[in-house]
């Protein structure tokens, strides 16, 4: 484990939304538990992957860390300060040290501002460099992400998706953050451009010691980029551990299912003949017991009732499943399985 104190500690974070307010007074409005008791720790310089399908709450989690959504309950400690209930000043500090990269390269830039203006605005608002140094710094930032200083005069509409995403990363870097939250930041890009952005992120991470929460549904990219992975399902983390351990010996059947469902480029690694049935259920009415049990091929009676299973395994790699991992994860040798118990 890292000796350094963690950069970000999230404990039992809950984000609920209220939907469908009824016309009749007294009738209950529906509560969507988008994030339902999530704990996650990020150390300086570490890249944590957050994977899951739609409705898993992974994006809401990322937004709640930056207080773009108001948390319902739980703690978000950034450098030791609780920002979930923080003052306006705490939130301002958080946002000066944490930046977000968005999915839609065009949508995340103001269409009526040039790239240069957007970068200069960050520098000016946070007084990061003296006013007369701003144009130089804008040029530096653009060069850093592989664009030309001349791109400063362009507007998002005049650039390609990959270039816009680079500009978005330059803007995120302008505040000199310690933590970057990247929300599906390559999902909207062409395959040949995705690699360019991933390489850029890896290079910047190495050069600047950035910590990163990489939210994605593309497991291959997560496996390549991340040190640790947390798998979310219906607002909860069902498994967390070092990337290679999670991918080679998953501790939750959902993770195993997810990994098996990626179409491999090697035609001999066939997709499972009977993929898990059903869609990810809606967080509006999550099933009792283990949230994954309706789609789980290994579910036993105990999975169908009570609360969600408690984490099992060790502190470093755990899964919230009642069953021993060797049941659903063939590469898990029973003899090297650590004594299972609550973490």
């Amino acid at each position: 484990m890292t000796q350094e104190s963690p950069l970000l500690e999230v404990e039992n974070l809950e984000v609920h939304f209220h939907r469908g307010r009824s016309f009749w007074p007294g009738a209950k409005s529906k509560t969507v538990r988008a994030v339902n008791g999530v704990s996650l720790t990020v150390h300086p310089g570490e890249t944590v992957g957050l994977v899951g399908e739609s409705g898993s709450g992974k994006s809401t989690f990322g937004r709640a860390v930056l207080r773009l959504e108001a948390p319902t309950a739980g703690l978000v400690l950034f450098e030791g300060v609780d920002v979930a209930r923080g003052t306006r000043g705490d939130i301002a500090t958080l946002r000066r040290r944490t930046a977000m990269i968005f999915q839609d390269p065009y949508g995340s830039l103001n269409p009526r501002m040039t790239i240069g203006d957007a970068l200069a605005e960050v520098l000016r608002v946070h007084r990061l460099v003296p006013v007369d140094r701003i144009p130089d710094r804008v040029g530096e930032l653009l060069t850093l992400v592989g664009l030309e200083p001349a791109h400063a005069t362009r507007k998002p509409g005049d650039m390609s998706g990959g270039q816009c995403q680079r500009a978005g990363i330059a803007r995120a870097l302008a505040i000199e953050p310690r933590l970057i939250i990247a929300d599906e930041c390559v999902a909207a890009l062409d395959v040949s451009i995705q690699g360019q952005i991933i390489n850029l992120l890896m290079e910047l991470r190495a050069r600047m010691g950035l910590a990163m929460i990489f939210i994605a549904h593309d497991l291959a990219i997560v496996r390549h980029l991340c040190d640790r992975v947390a798998v979310m399902y219906l607002g909860r983390i069902v498994e967390e551990g070092p990337t290679e351990a999670v991918f080679t010996a998953p501790r939750h059947p959902y993770t195993a299912t997810l990994i098996a469902a990626i179409p491999d480029i090697n035609p001999d690694h066939r997709l499972p003949a009977d993929p898990p049935p059903g869609d990810p259920p809606s967080p509006m009415n999550p099933p009792p017991g283990c949230p994954f049990h309706p789609r789980c091929a290994f579910a036993i009676d105990d999975c169908r009732g009570g609360g969600p299973p408690t984490p099992k395994g060790d502190r470093d790699h755990w899964g919230a499943c009642l069953l021993p991992p060797s049941v659903f994860s063939p590469s898990f040798q029973p003899n090297d399985e650590p004594p299972s118990g609550d973490v």
């Binding site: 549904h217 469902a261 179409p263 997709l271 009977d274």
Partner: peptide, 11 residues
């Protein structure tokens, strides 16, 4: 679609 659903549709 999500990957698990994608696998169903491809199947």
């Amino acid at each position: 679609l999500d990957v698990t659903v994608q696998a169903q549709i491809l199947r």
